[in-house]
Design a protein around this nucleic acid. Structure first.
Length: 416
RNA sequence: GUGCCUGUAGCUCAAUGGCAGAGUGCUUCACUGUGGCUGAAGAUGUUGAGGGUUCGACCCCCUUCAGGCACCCCA
């Protein structure tokens, strides 16, 4: 490479094609959100470190947030997640807002991590939450939003599954096995990682927590039991409701799903590509108290987050990313020669008045102009040459089908 | 933050210490009113960067940057 100043590690440049794909993604998740009555909101990208300090002990903030001093010397954080911002926004308007809230957001986030596939330092995330309800109905609704989104972008249930579990159920089962309250949080984290660690190392880690051989075996049996959900009234209802919502085939019980975040208290879920080649596409769950750490009345809710990186990789792998997004409604007007230039300019004006987006070429060989139009990805190219001008017509060529026809210039607005 | 792998033309990759190449793409022409085909010609590199070893380095060594894989964490 030449001496071009480098971009910041872990950031991405969005050239028009990629920007069009991101806009397409936003369009889809917006549609999925709004179909269930969710409203868009946004918070600042810059926050004080105090907002996150409330969640002390979280590695996310301590080790993975970008923190720097502003010119006044105050510590500023580039937001690594949206939940604390959401909590603040809800807490400070708690008496005016109409609950339950149905809110969604899409924006950039930053985490100082080692970049690799599906993980960058600057990424975009869709956050969606239903706040102020503790019901199973709310849990099922969020699962349905996620499933509807997957369906909207063309990911079928055989490609992506939403794996669900319930922390209350797991807590109960661990108690039955005789696991103490102090051991549970660490053990749950290990369960969450069981598929990432070699079996012997995992077993050693569990034993190190003080579990007996009999308890380790009992946990293995537990984690292999995909019918365990039947022992949970809530999960049984979730399955009933998501079937009624028409997305039952996307939802599957998986006892290994725990989620790393501490604040989940009930339902937890992750969407995974079924062949297992990717990180989780989205993840979320039910929390008992959103605003506890920032002051305010306790508020339960359920929500999930989806990063832009993994879902786009999955969509690409399945060939589901739409092409030719750059110039969807644009027509390309060729310029036959210098003499026809002014008349061609007038044609572009007429087209724009009819509501078209128009690109005007510069005089050149027609072949070159058509090639340019083709490479730009526009669908229609127009020719206004001496013959057309004499007849009061324009030649319209569909660059995809190679068909072309002659139409009256006075009817230009109604032809496409 | 830990361990390992990779980095050569716009892109995908060759060249195992001895003249930096191919495919594809790109430009021009065949084609004086038409882009996907065909044929012909042409252009393109500080081999990621910096240093070292050597008569000689894409190749070996060191440093650094970037990407990837597994941890960690999570979207």
């Amino acid at each position: 490479m030449k001496n071009i100043v480098r971009s910041v590690k872990g950031t991405r440049d969005f050239y028009p094609d990629e920007m069009a794909r991101r806009a397409w993604l936003v369009e889809k998740l917006k549609a999925a959100s709004e179909a269930f009555g969710y409203q868009r909101y946004e918070g600042p990208c810059l926050e004080t470190i105090d907002l996150y300090a409330a969640k002390s002990g979280e590695e996310l903030v301590k080790e993975q947030a970008f923190v720097f001093e502003d010119r006044g010397g105050d510590p500023i954080t580039l937001r690594p997640e949206l939940t604390p911002t959401l909590a603040r926004m809800v807490a400070s308007q708690q008496n005016e807002l109409v609950f339950p809230l149905r809110w969604w957001a899409f924006g950039p986030f930053w985490r100082y991590e080692r970049p690799q596939k599906g993980r960058t330092r600057e990424f975009y995330q869709w956050n969606i939450d239903l706040i102020g309800s503790d019901s199973v109905q709310a849990d099922a609704e969020l699962l349905a939003v996620a499933a509807n989104f997957l369906s909207l972008v063309g990911l079928r249930a055989d490609m992506v599954q939403i794996l669900i579990n319930d922390r209350r159920l797991m807590d109960r089962k661990l108690t039955e096995i005789g696991i103490g309250t102090q051991t549970k949080p660490e053990l749950l984290k290990l369960i969450d990682r069981i598929d990432k660690q070699p079996a012997d190392i995992w077993e050693k880690n569990v034993t190190d927590l003080g579990l007996s051989a009999g308890q380790v075996d009992a946990i293995k049996v537990l984690l292999a039991n995909t019918d365990l959900w039947q022992e949970s009234e809530e999960l049984s209802q979730v399955f009933e409701y998501v079937r009624a919502l028409g997305v039952g085939e996307y939802i599957r019980y998986e006892p290994k799903i725990i989620r790393g975040l501490d604040y989940y208290t009930g339902l937890v879920f992750e969407a995974h590509e079924t062949k297992g080649d990717f990180r989780a596409i989205l993840g979320g769950g039910h929390y008992a108290n959103l605003v506890a750490d920032v002051g305010g009345q306790p508020l339960p809710g359920v929500g999930f987050a989806m990063g832009d990186v993994v879902v786009m990789l999955v969509l690409e792998a399945y060939g589901l990313l739409p092409s030719n997004l750059s110039y969807p409604g644009t027509v390309f007007v060729t310029v036959f020669d210098e003499k026809m230039l002014v008349e061609s300019i007038k044609l572009t004006k007429e087209l724009r008045e009819s509501g078209f987006n128009v690109i005007l070429a510069e005089p050149d060989k027609l072949g070159k102009q058509f090639k340019l139009a083709d490479r730009l990805g526009v669908k229609f190219a127009l020719v206004l040459g001496p013959d057309e001008f004499a007849n009061g017509t324009v030649t319209v060529k569909d660059l995809r089908s190679f068909e072309q026809r002659s139409i009256l210039r006075t009817e230009i607005g109604s032809i496409f």
